[in-house]
Design a protein around this nucleic acid. Structure first.
Length: 570
RNA sequence: CGGGCUGUAGCGCAGCUUGGUUAGCGCGCGGCGUUUGGGACGCCGAGGUCGCCGGUUCAAAUCCGGCCAGCCCGACCA
């Protein structure tokens, strides 16, 4: 492509509202433009990158036996009502009616439709099956951000596997784990698989692929010693044991005027250090009022409540709800002697004695509380968020917690959808069996953003060759010098003939502008062709990644670049 | 959904408090000229429903009301 003819609206100033490096650079480099909140147009450069990402995904999916198809974006409500998700995921689904008044929706994912198609499978002889498509999803996120990182409309590769039994599902799941590993390697992403919560997808087991980045929205706990890795939504840890001072007798009420927080109480009473307090949080879990108990210095992980209590809706209780349930305001709440409210406690409280907690009367607390004696715990459930430095659950070494971008997620769904939609086959003995399903997703745009987040410097993007919009840019230093333009055009033709994707910067701009633009856009290799070098029969080859420069003979330039690019194509 | 802020040329902004000729500035864009191996400069020029609707007024970008859109914080989030 000749740059002078290309639509590459590079900006030289930062967009005012950019909130992530990839957001800023993709806009600056003319890759994307916002249409509305969470919807982005892919301009020619952005589209080329997205196409390359998609092609890599296709190749790896096909390599594990995937069959590509394409399903619609607008679905009838019917099938979503059958699986129960028409109402379950209220909020993020855009719903609409057609001219006859029939309910429809924009697809947020495609389990329902793929499963419906799978009802056409009738024999175990047709299994296993692995189907996928690259299709638009629309999720009406409350607050999109980060450019392509968190959007409402996006393209996703989603694949679905169908097997006769759990063992078959395990095989497909492991095949995806391998395919995803290769995909992310080819994309230049250092993605680590971690244990994750399945969330509203349902299912029994899921693994997320995470790329460490401050722009991410998830926290991942990892152990350098043994390789344990889990999303903090799911992660557990070993805690140092605490030896409590003995306390004989019943809990004792004491006055705590104006004291509302754990920190204030610790300050107020020297025996009530945070790890000797019980944190009491009132939540409405699936409509049921629930008191959640944690150690004072621990943070609640709401997702663990969702998963552990299998609730659709989990939210903190409102002030009025707290007062009418507990008889006191937040800040003086406690579980001692409480009845009529479900009590769920974190195991870190098990066996503890001489604890301090709210007395369920405003401005009063209790000391000397023995958890097992004084509190009627209905359910013990891991509720807390692991923190950096706590012991790895597998080996005890200190955990690290890092912000990460979720670039892929694979789920073992089980029979949830095949059950709801009667997707069954007959087995060897002629018996009807439900299909065991898995679903596996990769967001294309989010991966593009993740690549930029991890491949940029102060000058701009540094694309890995496999996803670069162009592999080589030829910078023509002076287009008014015939010999220069001729030499550059010859190299351009040679590279194109060799199958290299090359951009010829034949714009009437000063060299400094061309160098800077090529760097913002992030083309991996640049050939500088100018009168100065040509006087000695040379051109310059610069590698974007590290700025290394070499001088090569004009006649050899194309051949050298072909070798370099092909070596990095993956 | 709650709180805060913003909306003026393709982009970034000033003007609004205190209403009054023709609404400005920088970048970008077009023409001409000088320049040309790291983001040049001069001259000339094009480009605007001041987010939308309504109200107040002799007069509204400016004041008032409603609506819409976007951003930030929180809630929420497969």
């Amino acid at each position: 492509m000749r740059w002078s003819q290309a639509f590459i609206p590079t900006l030289r100033d930062d967009p005012a509202d950019a909130d992530a490096a990839s957001h800023r650079l993709l806009v600056r480099g003319g890759f994307i433009r916002r249409l509305m909140s969470g919807s982005w147009s892919l301009l020619p450069l952005g589209f080329r990158v997205a196409q390359k990402v998609e092609q890599i995904i296709r190749e790896e999916m096909n390599a594990i036996g995937g069959q590509e198809m394409e399903l619609p974006v607008v679905h009838p409500a019917e099938v979503w009502k059958q699986t129960g998700r028409w109402d379950d995921v209220e909020g993020i689904i855009v719903k609409m009616k057609d001219r006859r008044g029939a309910d429809m929706l924009l697809a947020i994912t495609h389990e329902e439709i793929f499963t419906q198609i799978a009802t056409e499978l009738s024999s175990y002889r047709q299994l296993p099956q692995l189907w996928y498509h690259l299709q638009t999803k629309f999720r009406d996120e409350p607050r999109p951000k980060g450019g392509l990182l968190r959007v409402r409309e996006f393209t996703m590769k989603d694949s679905y596997s169908f097997d006769i039994d759990p063992a078959g599902l395990d095989v497909q799941f492991e095949a995806h784990r391998g395919a995803y590993k290769r995909i992310f390697e080819r994309l230049g992403l250092d993605a680590v698989p971690v244990h994750a919560s399945s969330g509203a997808m349902g299912g029994r087991e899921s693994v997320e692929f995470m790329v460490a980045s401050p722009a991410g929205e998830d926290d991942v706990a990892t152990c350098a010693a043994c390789g344990y890795a889990a999303n903090t939504e799911k992660a557990t840890s070993r805690l140092d044991p605490i030896t409590d001072e003995p306390w004989d007798g019943a809990p004792e009420v004491f006055d705590t005027p104006g004291i509302r927080t754990i920190a204030e109480l610790a300050e107020f009473a020297d025996f009530a250090t945070p790890e000797r307090q019980i944190k009491s949080l009132v939540y409405i879990v699936g409509g049921e009022p629930t008191l959640l108990l944690l150690r004072g210095d621990h943070e609640l992980m709401e997702q663990k409540v969702v998963d552990g209590l299998e609730a659709q809706e989990v939210r903190p209780a409102h002030e009025e709800e707290i007062v009418s349930l507990m008889g006191a305001n937040a800040g003086s709440l406690g579980a001692v002697g409480l009845t009529g409210v479900r009590i769920v406690a974190d195991p870190a409280l098990e066996g503890r004695v001489n604890m301090t907690t709210g007395a369920n009367q405003d401005d009063k607390h209790l000391r000397g509380v023995a958890v097992s004696r004084d509190i009627a715990v209905d359910r013990w459930l891991d509720l807390r968020t692991v923190a950096e430095g706590e012991g790895c659950p597998d080996c005890g070494e200190p955990l690290e917690v890092r912000r990460s971008i979720e670039v892929g997620h694979i789920f073992k769904l089980g029979t949830k959808y095949s059950d709801a939609l009667s997707a069954t086959v007959l087995d060897e003995s002629g018996e009807e069996r439900e299909l065991w399903m898995g679903s596996y997703g990769i967001g294309v745009g989010r991966n593009v953003a993740a690549i930029v987040e991890t491949h940029h410097d102060d000058k701009g993007i540094v694309w890995p060759v496999p996803v670069a919009p162009y592999e080589v840019v030829i910078t023509v230093v002076s287009i008014t010098d015939d010999a220069t333009l001729e030499a550059a055009t010859r190299i351009y033709d040679e590279l194109r003939a060799a199958g290299i994707e090359v951009l010829l910067d034949d714009r009437d701009e000063r060299p400094g502008v061309k160098f800077a633009d090529a760097e913002i856009i992030g083309i991996p290799y640049r050939i500088t062709v100018g009168p100065r070098g040509l006087a000695d029969g040379n051109v310059e080859v610069v590698r974007r990644q590290d700025g290394t420069t070499e001088t090569v003979a004009v006649a050899e330039a194309a051949g050298i670049l072909v070798a370099k690019v092909e070596a990095e194509r993956l």
